[in-house]
Design a protein around this nucleic acid. Sequence first.
DNA 1: AATACGTTCAACCGCTACTCG
DNA 2: ACGAGTAGCGGTTGAACGTAT
Length: 311
Amino acid sequence: MGRRPCCTKEGLNRGAWSAREDNILINYVKAHGEGKWRDVPERAGLKRCGKSCRLRWLNYLRPDIKRGNISVEEEELIIRLHKLLGNRWSLIAGRIPGRTDNEIKNYWNTHLSRRIMQDGYKILQDSYNKQLITDDDEGSRSEFIQGTGQETHDDHSVVRTKEMRCSNAFIPKQLDIEMEKNASTLVIPDWGSDQIRSSLAQQEDNSDENFLMDYVVNDLLMSDHKLSCLDSHQDKELNECENMVDGEMDHHAKNNYIMPSCCEDFLVSGHDQAMRENWRPQTEPNSQPNDALDLKTLTSLLNLEDEWIIS
DNA sequence: AATACGTTCAACCGCTACTCG
DNA sequence: ACGAGTAGCGGTTGAACGTAT
């Protein structure tokens, strides 16, 4: 028995959506919420494939989607994130408030890829220099941003995709010490072990000391530094990091991954305490450490990274 | 004004990861 | 453990629009 097709494709509308179809879908999602996309066309009375409904909602109709041109800041962010993450559009989109993966992918393919082909990532350096100048003068900085026609602040939430929801790594301090001892191997903890349980219990009363990390961000922050700051065993750990992000670790390992100490060192011993504070998580294990980050914060963090690259 | 060519971006397609029974 | 169903991802397509000739 084969898989049931997502739709019969017979008698269905294709191509651009009409305003009427949009309204129907918006009203349906308002009333019933997202999900069960296969059932949406029938229940909402749309002659569309469920997949098409989902795409239309996620990429166009969602209320938190930001319309309009990509700002200079956003463009810079896209370039930096692409440099570090490659064509993982949903990951990139997950860190740019109000933008969808499709939009960023299109923008990259039409605007940025050619520039990168011509100039390489040199444009990042130019952009960085420009920012250094404007940072010296807050007034001129705001002018710079206003000059783009974009608001300097917005309240759009991040368009969250599946990959944004994935694992946080929780690093008890004691475990990190253990990792220091075993630096030549990647430590995948057994979360049921007595040692881990006791370590976790010890730190429950001291939640400020806990340090949740989003492995994607770790990857983002450390990838260009491995040559300059790591010795060979640390490099091995980094490879494991990258393999994990590339999906070469199994699911269990992904969910339980502990960032190698060298990676955390970069976060902790980075430029200043503010950087660490920026990444300090909420104390809830299921919370998402980056929710509070706005575009400026992320941009400034990436600038810190550039300082490392440039120096 | 007509046509060709280039660009943009919404939508589609095929695949994979994940979930659930 | 397995298989079917679902959600989501990234690559690709093609219609609409803009610009050059």
